[in-house]
Protein backbone atom coordinates (compact mmCIF):
# COMPACT_ATOMS: atom_id res chain seq x y z
CA UNK A 1 0.00 0.00 0.00
CA UNK A 2 0.92 3.58 -0.28
CA UNK A 3 1.06 4.40 3.39
CA UNK A 4 4.57 3.33 4.25
CA UNK A 5 5.07 6.10 6.76
CA UNK A 6 3.68 4.64 9.96
CA UNK A 7 5.25 1.24 9.58
CA UNK A 8 8.16 0.06 11.68
CA UNK A 9 10.68 -2.33 10.09
CA UNK A 10 9.45 -5.16 12.28
CA UNK A 11 5.83 -4.69 11.29
CA UNK A 12 6.95 -4.48 7.69
CA UNK A 13 8.78 -7.80 8.01
CA UNK A 14 5.72 -9.38 9.60
CA UNK A 15 3.78 -8.42 6.55
CA UNK A 16 6.47 -9.52 4.13
CA UNK A 17 7.80 -12.68 5.79
CA UNK A 18 9.68 -13.63 2.66
CA UNK A 19 12.11 -10.76 3.24
CA UNK A 20 12.76 -12.12 6.71
CA UNK A 21 13.64 -15.36 5.02
CA UNK A 22 15.85 -13.58 2.49
CA UNK A 23 17.66 -11.88 5.36
CA UNK A 24 18.05 -15.19 7.15
CA UNK A 25 19.57 -17.08 4.23
CA UNK A 26 21.71 -14.06 3.44
CA UNK A 27 23.19 -14.07 6.94
CA UNK A 28 23.43 -17.84 6.94
CA UNK A 29 25.43 -18.03 3.73
CA UNK A 30 27.56 -15.04 4.68
CA UNK A 31 28.66 -16.95 7.76
CA UNK A 32 28.92 -20.36 6.11
CA UNK A 33 30.74 -19.50 2.92
CA UNK A 34 33.67 -17.16 2.55
CA UNK A 35 32.88 -16.61 -1.10
CA UNK A 36 29.31 -15.54 -0.55
CA UNK A 37 29.66 -12.08 0.94
CA UNK A 38 31.43 -10.59 -2.01
CA UNK A 39 30.42 -7.84 -4.38
CA UNK A 40 31.11 -9.97 -7.43
CA UNK A 41 28.93 -12.69 -6.05
CA UNK A 42 26.08 -10.27 -5.45
CA UNK A 43 26.34 -9.27 -9.09
CA UNK A 44 26.15 -12.94 -9.98
CA UNK A 45 23.07 -13.48 -7.91
CA UNK A 46 21.30 -10.55 -9.52
CA UNK A 47 22.21 -11.65 -13.03
CA UNK A 48 21.19 -15.25 -12.35
CA UNK A 49 17.97 -14.08 -10.79
CA UNK A 50 17.04 -11.72 -13.58
CA UNK A 51 15.75 -14.43 -15.94
CA UNK A 52 13.17 -15.86 -13.56
CA UNK A 53 12.71 -12.48 -11.93
CA UNK A 54 11.55 -10.64 -15.04
CA UNK A 55 8.87 -13.23 -15.73
CA UNK A 56 7.85 -13.26 -12.08
CA UNK A 57 7.06 -9.55 -12.31
CA UNK A 58 4.51 -10.24 -15.01
CA UNK A 59 3.24 -13.35 -13.26
CA UNK A 60 2.50 -11.21 -10.21
CA UNK A 61 0.15 -9.03 -12.26
CA UNK A 62 -1.53 -12.01 -13.88
CA UNK A 63 -1.95 -13.84 -10.59
CA UNK A 64 -3.31 -10.79 -8.76
CA UNK A 65 -5.86 -10.75 -11.59
CA UNK A 66 -6.83 -14.25 -10.50
CA UNK A 67 -5.32 -15.82 -13.61
CA UNK A 68 -2.15 -17.78 -14.23
CA UNK A 69 0.21 -18.13 -17.21
CA UNK A 70 1.85 -21.49 -17.79
CA UNK A 71 3.14 -20.60 -21.25
CA UNK A 72 5.94 -18.25 -20.20
CA UNK A 73 8.75 -20.79 -20.58
CA UNK A 74 7.74 -21.48 -24.16
CA UNK A 75 7.33 -17.79 -24.95
CA UNK A 76 10.81 -17.21 -23.59
CA UNK A 77 12.23 -19.85 -25.92
CA UNK A 78 10.36 -18.48 -28.93
CA UNK A 79 11.56 -14.94 -28.30
CA UNK A 80 15.13 -16.12 -27.79
CA UNK A 81 14.98 -18.02 -31.08
CA UNK A 82 13.74 -14.93 -32.93
CA UNK A 83 16.27 -12.64 -31.31
CA UNK A 84 19.21 -14.81 -32.28
CA UNK A 85 17.96 -15.85 -35.69
CA UNK A 86 16.65 -12.59 -37.10
CA UNK A 87 19.96 -10.77 -36.73
CA UNK A 88 21.51 -13.15 -39.23
CA UNK A 89 18.77 -12.63 -41.83
CA UNK A 90 20.25 -11.60 -45.14
CA UNK A 91 18.30 -8.35 -45.30
CA UNK A 92 20.09 -7.08 -42.20
CA UNK A 93 23.51 -8.31 -43.34
CA UNK A 94 24.80 -4.81 -43.99
CA UNK A 95 23.41 -3.27 -40.83
CA UNK A 96 26.42 -4.14 -38.68
CA UNK A 97 25.57 -4.09 -35.01
CA UNK A 98 22.27 -2.41 -35.83
CA UNK A 99 21.02 -5.80 -36.99
CA UNK A 100 20.43 -6.55 -33.33
CA UNK A 101 17.77 -3.88 -33.15
CA UNK A 102 15.16 -5.42 -35.49
CA UNK A 103 15.94 -8.85 -34.05
CA UNK A 104 15.28 -7.84 -30.47
CA UNK A 105 12.26 -5.72 -31.40
CA UNK A 106 10.72 -8.60 -33.29
CA UNK A 107 11.41 -10.98 -30.40
CA UNK A 108 9.70 -8.65 -27.93
CA UNK A 109 6.77 -8.17 -30.30
CA UNK A 110 6.38 -11.91 -30.59
CA UNK A 111 6.23 -12.13 -26.80
CA UNK A 112 3.56 -9.45 -26.64
CA UNK A 113 1.65 -11.21 -29.40
CA UNK A 114 1.70 -14.55 -27.55
CA UNK A 115 0.42 -12.82 -24.43
CA UNK A 116 -2.25 -11.07 -26.45
CA UNK A 117 -3.41 -14.40 -27.89
CA UNK A 118 -3.68 -15.92 -24.41
CA UNK A 119 -5.45 -12.88 -23.04
CA UNK A 120 -7.83 -12.63 -25.95
CA UNK A 121 -8.82 -16.28 -25.64
CA UNK A 122 -9.35 -15.95 -21.88
CA UNK A 123 -11.44 -12.84 -22.46
CA UNK A 124 -13.60 -14.07 -25.29
CA UNK A 125 -14.07 -17.75 -24.51
CA UNK A 126 -14.29 -17.53 -20.73
CA UNK A 127 -12.14 -20.67 -20.51
CA UNK A 128 -10.02 -20.75 -17.36
CA UNK A 129 -6.58 -19.19 -17.82
CA UNK A 130 -4.98 -22.32 -16.44
CA UNK A 131 -6.31 -24.38 -19.34
CA UNK A 132 -5.77 -21.70 -21.98
CA UNK A 133 -2.13 -21.22 -21.05
CA UNK A 134 -1.55 -24.93 -20.55
CA UNK A 135 -2.58 -25.38 -24.16
CA UNK A 136 -0.44 -22.42 -25.16
CA UNK A 137 2.52 -23.88 -23.29
CA UNK A 138 2.38 -26.96 -25.51
CA UNK A 139 1.48 -25.00 -28.64
CA UNK A 140 4.09 -22.26 -28.35
CA UNK A 141 6.75 -24.87 -27.61
CA UNK A 142 5.56 -26.50 -30.82
CA UNK A 143 6.05 -23.17 -32.61
CA UNK A 144 9.59 -23.00 -31.25
CA UNK A 145 10.35 -26.39 -32.73
CA UNK A 146 8.70 -25.53 -36.01
CA UNK A 147 10.70 -22.33 -36.22
CA UNK A 148 14.06 -23.76 -35.17
CA UNK A 149 13.60 -27.19 -36.76
CA UNK A 150 14.88 -28.70 -33.52
CA UNK A 151 18.30 -27.12 -33.80
CA UNK A 152 19.95 -24.42 -31.77
CA UNK A 153 20.70 -20.98 -33.17
CA UNK A 154 24.02 -19.35 -32.42
CA UNK A 155 24.56 -15.62 -32.35
CA UNK A 156 27.05 -14.66 -35.05
CA UNK A 157 27.29 -11.07 -33.93
CA UNK A 158 29.68 -10.95 -31.01
CA UNK A 159 28.30 -7.63 -29.89
CA UNK A 160 25.15 -9.57 -29.01
CA UNK A 161 26.76 -12.08 -26.74
CA UNK A 162 29.07 -9.47 -25.29
CA UNK A 163 26.06 -7.48 -24.20
CA UNK A 164 25.50 -9.65 -21.17
CA UNK A 165 29.01 -8.95 -19.92
CA UNK A 166 28.55 -5.17 -20.10
CA UNK A 167 28.48 -3.10 -16.98
CA UNK A 168 27.43 0.43 -16.25
CA UNK A 169 29.93 1.44 -13.65
CA UNK A 170 29.87 -1.31 -11.08
CA UNK A 171 26.48 -2.64 -12.16
CA UNK A 172 26.05 -5.44 -14.69
CA UNK A 173 23.62 -4.38 -17.39
CA UNK A 174 21.40 -7.43 -16.97
CA UNK A 175 20.92 -6.72 -13.29
CA UNK A 176 20.15 -3.09 -14.08
CA UNK A 177 17.52 -4.03 -16.62
CA UNK A 178 15.92 -6.38 -14.12
CA UNK A 179 15.92 -3.78 -11.35
CA UNK A 180 14.57 -1.11 -13.69
CA UNK A 181 11.74 -3.38 -14.77
CA UNK A 182 11.03 -4.23 -11.16
CA UNK A 183 10.73 -0.56 -10.32
CA UNK A 184 8.52 0.16 -13.32
CA UNK A 185 6.15 -2.74 -12.70
CA UNK A 186 6.04 -1.84 -9.02
CA UNK A 187 5.04 1.72 -9.91
CA UNK A 188 2.47 0.53 -12.43
CA UNK A 189 0.92 -1.82 -9.91
CA UNK A 190 0.89 0.56 -6.98
CA UNK A 191 0.41 3.96 -8.62
CA UNK A 192 -1.56 3.67 -11.83
CA UNK A 193 -5.22 3.11 -12.43
CA UNK A 194 -4.41 -0.02 -14.41
CA UNK A 195 -2.46 -1.38 -11.45
CA UNK A 196 -5.18 -0.59 -8.96
CA UNK A 197 -7.79 -2.15 -11.25
CA UNK A 198 -5.62 -5.27 -11.28
CA UNK A 199 -6.39 -5.71 -7.59
CA UNK A 200 -10.06 -4.88 -8.09
CA UNK A 201 -10.51 -7.46 -10.86
CA UNK A 202 -8.82 -10.19 -8.84
CA UNK A 203 -10.23 -9.24 -5.46
CA UNK A 204 -13.88 -8.95 -6.39
CA UNK A 205 -14.63 -9.50 -10.04
CA UNK A 206 -18.30 -8.63 -9.69
CA UNK A 207 -17.56 -5.38 -7.90
CA UNK A 208 -15.11 -4.50 -10.67
CA UNK A 209 -17.70 -5.19 -13.36
CA UNK A 210 -20.30 -3.17 -11.47
CA UNK A 211 -17.85 -0.31 -11.18
CA UNK A 212 -17.52 -0.26 -14.96
CA UNK A 213 -14.03 -1.71 -15.26
CA UNK A 214 -13.71 -3.56 -18.56
CA UNK A 215 -12.44 -6.80 -17.14
CA UNK A 216 -11.69 -8.59 -20.42
CA UNK A 217 -9.38 -6.03 -22.06
CA UNK A 218 -7.85 -5.36 -18.68
CA UNK A 219 -6.79 -8.98 -18.28
CA UNK A 220 -5.55 -9.05 -21.85
CA UNK A 221 -3.21 -6.14 -21.14
CA UNK A 222 -1.70 -8.02 -18.22
CA UNK A 223 -1.19 -11.09 -20.38
CA UNK A 224 0.58 -8.87 -22.90
CA UNK A 225 2.79 -7.48 -20.16
CA UNK A 226 3.82 -10.94 -19.02
CA UNK A 227 4.39 -11.94 -22.66
CA UNK A 228 6.68 -8.94 -23.09
CA UNK A 229 8.59 -9.69 -19.91
CA UNK A 230 8.97 -13.38 -20.79
CA UNK A 231 10.31 -12.35 -24.20
CA UNK A 232 12.69 -9.84 -22.65
CA UNK A 233 13.87 -12.54 -20.30
CA UNK A 234 14.42 -14.83 -23.29
CA UNK A 235 16.42 -12.20 -25.15
CA UNK A 236 18.64 -11.55 -22.15
CA UNK A 237 19.13 -15.26 -21.54
CA UNK A 238 20.18 -15.75 -25.15
CA UNK A 239 22.74 -12.95 -24.84
CA UNK A 240 24.19 -14.77 -21.87
CA UNK A 241 24.38 -18.03 -23.77
CA UNK A 242 25.16 -16.53 -27.15
CA UNK A 243 22.60 -18.98 -28.45
CA UNK A 244 18.96 -20.04 -28.38
CA UNK A 245 18.09 -23.69 -27.86
CA UNK A 246 14.61 -25.03 -28.50
CA UNK A 247 14.32 -26.41 -24.97
CA UNK A 248 15.20 -23.10 -23.37
CA UNK A 249 12.96 -22.14 -20.47
CA UNK A 250 11.48 -25.55 -19.82
CA UNK A 251 9.92 -25.72 -16.34
CA UNK A 252 10.46 -22.00 -15.85
CA UNK A 253 6.75 -21.54 -15.33
CA UNK A 254 6.98 -23.70 -12.24
CA UNK A 255 9.94 -21.77 -10.85
CA UNK A 256 8.26 -18.48 -11.53
CA UNK A 257 5.02 -19.50 -9.85
CA UNK A 258 7.02 -20.78 -6.89
CA UNK A 259 8.79 -17.43 -6.57
CA UNK A 260 5.59 -15.44 -6.84
CA UNK A 261 3.72 -17.56 -4.32
CA UNK A 262 6.68 -17.37 -1.93
CA UNK A 263 6.37 -13.61 -2.29
CA UNK A 264 2.87 -13.71 -0.87
CA UNK A 265 0.72 -13.40 -3.98
CA UNK A 266 -2.50 -15.36 -3.72
CA UNK A 267 -3.51 -17.81 -6.44
CA UNK A 268 -7.10 -16.79 -5.88
CA UNK A 269 -6.26 -13.24 -6.86
CA UNK A 270 -6.61 -9.82 -5.33
CA UNK A 271 -3.53 -9.97 -3.18
CA UNK A 272 0.20 -9.62 -3.70
CA UNK A 273 2.83 -7.07 -4.61
CA UNK A 274 6.10 -6.63 -6.45
CA UNK A 275 8.13 -6.17 -3.27
CA UNK A 276 7.06 -9.62 -2.15
CA UNK A 277 7.79 -11.11 -5.55
CA UNK A 278 11.27 -9.56 -5.55
CA UNK A 279 11.78 -11.20 -2.17
CA UNK A 280 10.59 -14.55 -3.51
CA UNK A 281 12.87 -14.32 -6.52
CA UNK A 282 15.87 -13.32 -4.42
CA UNK A 283 15.17 -16.09 -1.90
CA UNK A 284 15.41 -18.66 -4.66
CA UNK A 285 18.45 -16.95 -6.21
CA UNK A 286 20.37 -16.70 -2.95
CA UNK A 287 19.53 -20.28 -1.99
CA UNK A 288 20.76 -21.63 -5.29
CA UNK A 289 23.84 -19.48 -5.30
CA UNK A 290 24.75 -20.08 -1.67
CA UNK A 291 24.28 -23.82 -1.82
CA UNK A 292 26.31 -23.88 -4.98
CA UNK A 293 29.12 -22.03 -3.22
CA UNK A 294 28.94 -24.45 -0.33
CA UNK A 295 29.19 -27.23 -2.88
CA UNK A 296 25.91 -28.71 -1.80
CA UNK A 297 24.64 -30.65 -4.80
CA UNK A 298 22.01 -28.68 -6.65
CA UNK A 299 19.51 -31.48 -5.90
CA UNK A 300 18.98 -30.34 -2.34
CA UNK A 301 17.83 -26.96 -3.55
CA UNK A 302 14.79 -28.62 -5.14
CA UNK A 303 13.86 -30.38 -1.93
CA UNK A 304 14.35 -27.26 0.15
CA UNK A 305 12.40 -25.06 -2.26
CA UNK A 306 9.53 -27.50 -2.46
CA UNK A 307 9.40 -27.78 1.30
CA UNK A 308 9.53 -24.02 1.78
CA UNK A 309 6.71 -23.53 -0.69
CA UNK A 310 4.48 -25.95 1.18
CA UNK A 311 5.56 -24.56 4.55
CA UNK A 312 4.68 -21.03 3.46
CA UNK A 313 1.25 -22.22 2.41
CA UNK A 314 0.78 -24.03 5.70
CA UNK A 315 1.82 -21.04 7.83
CA UNK A 316 -0.33 -18.72 5.77
CA UNK A 317 -3.31 -20.96 6.40
CA UNK A 318 -2.58 -21.12 10.13
CA UNK A 319 -2.22 -17.38 10.55
CA UNK A 320 -4.88 -16.19 8.16
CA UNK A 321 -7.64 -18.62 9.03
CA UNK A 322 -10.66 -17.55 7.13
CA UNK A 323 -13.57 -16.78 9.37
CA UNK A 324 -16.06 -19.52 8.78
CA UNK A 325 -16.70 -19.28 12.49
CA UNK A 326 -15.33 -22.66 13.44
CA UNK A 327 -17.65 -24.60 11.18
CA UNK A 328 -16.08 -27.98 10.53
CA UNK A 329 -16.32 -28.52 6.80
Amino acid sequence: MSNLTDITPLRWLMRNPIWGFVLLVFIFFSLMSEHFFDYRNFQNILVQTSTIGLIALGMTLVMINGNIDLSVGATLALAAAFAVDVQSWAMFATWGNWQILPAVSLALLVGILMGAINGFIVWKTGVDAFIVTLGAMLGIRGLVFVYTGESSFYAMNFAYSDFSALSVGPFPVLALIFLACTLIVHLVLSRTVHGRNTYAVGGNREAAVNAGIRVGPHMMVNFMIIGFLAALSGVLLSTQMGAATPNLGRDYELWVITAVVLGGTKLTGGKGDIIGTLGGVLAIGILRNGMNLMQVPAFYVYVILGSILIAVLFLDKRFNRTANGGLRL
Binding site: L254, I257, T258, V261, F299, Y302, L305, I310
Partner: peptide, 15 residues
Protein backbone atom coordinates in the same frame (compact mmCIF):
# COMPACT_ATOMS: atom_id res chain seq x y z
CA UNK B 1 0.76 -25.15 -4.87
CA UNK B 2 1.24 -28.25 -2.73
CA UNK B 3 1.75 -30.51 -5.73
CA UNK B 4 3.93 -27.85 -7.35
CA UNK B 5 6.09 -27.93 -4.24
CA UNK B 6 6.04 -31.72 -4.27
CA UNK B 7 7.06 -31.70 -7.93
CA UNK B 8 10.19 -29.82 -6.99
CA UNK B 9 10.87 -31.72 -3.77
CA UNK B 10 10.44 -35.16 -5.34
CA UNK B 11 12.64 -34.21 -8.29
CA UNK B 12 15.28 -33.30 -5.70
CA UNK B 13 14.78 -36.60 -3.91
CA UNK B 14 15.34 -38.51 -7.12
CA UNK B 15 18.54 -36.63 -7.83
Amino acid sequence: IVTLGMLSAIQGLVL
